[in-house]
């Protein structure tokens, strides 16, 4: 069967691009290629990954300048065709700046850069990014950011909740979205959302960093196996 292809966009200052590439190419075993941000086309990729990092040094606002990189026009077109885009950490910030996802990521409430594993509850397992998880499943996935405090106006927040666009929420050991479990002050403990059509995901935690036991866990792998299932209809046979 023909393999699907992931395109990992590389901006100046991206630093999780190789982690994402490793996850989809070597662990998932699909095709992957790096896409320099100056490129004017995406080639034949099925899924675009906007990786974590500090694109353009986070100057002005996180993602504000990279959002205007030449490749972003193509990423926006790809998304508008209903094809899949995932933005992780800085990638999530870029997606909000680009208007592909609502809201914004503000400075962490603590003012500190937070780098640790957090618990995430799968709020919606009926998306292309989460179908391999169980609803309510609690995952352990690392975060590493200084600006991950998800904010949006009350009306948009209500729409996100009503339309089940909140995909991941920060929770405690009992699976409850408490203030203590919230690493950055995000409204509603929101860690990840999809757009209205469900083909664009943004999340602050790093699923690509937990895709094999060597890395301390594989709770993040489901995001990528879900995408494979959505694209190729292949249910993974690995345990």
């Amino acid at each position: 069967m023909e393999k699907m292809k992931f395109g990992v966009v590389v901006f100046p200052g991206s630093n999780c691009d190789h982690d994402a590439y490793h996850a989809v190419k070597h662990v998932l075993g699909e095709q992957a290629e790096f896409l320099w941000h100056k490129e004017g086309h995406l080639g034949d990729v099925d899924v675009v990954i906007l990786p974590g990092g500090f694109s353009y040094g986070d100057y002005l606002r996180c993602g504000a300048i990279s959002r205007f990189s030449p490749i972003m026009k193509e990423v926006i077109r790809h998304a508008s065709e209903g094809r899949h885009v995932i933005g992780i950490c800085n990638g999530f910030q870029i997606l909000t700046e680009a208007g592909l996802l609502p809201g914004a990521l503000l400075r962490n409430h603590s003012l500190r850069f937070v780098c640790r594993s957090v618990r995430l509850r799968v709020e919606n397992n009926e998306t292309a990014f989460t179908s391999q998880f169980m609803a309510g499943q609690v995952l352990t996935v690392p975060v590493a950011h200084g600006e991950g405090n998800f904010y949006t106006d009350t009306e948009t927040l209500g729409e996100l909740e009503a339309r089940n666009q909140v995909v991941f929420r920060y929770v405690d050991v009992d699976g409850e979205p408490t203030d203590q479990a919230n690493p950055n002050g995000s409204l509603g403990n929101i860690a990840g959302i999809v757009n209205r059509h469900g083909n664009v995901l943004g999340m602050m935690p790093h699923p690509e960093r937990v895709v094999e036991q060597l890395l301390g866990g594989d709770d993040g792998l489901g995001v990528f196996t879900s995408l494979r299932d959505a694209i190729t209809g292949t249910v993974p046979t690995t345990s």
Binding site: L60, I65, E97, A104
Partner: peptide
């Protein structure tokens, strides 16, 4: 377009 983000 760039210098301010109207969301925040």
């Amino acid at each position: 377009k760039l210098l301010a983000n109207p969301v925040m």
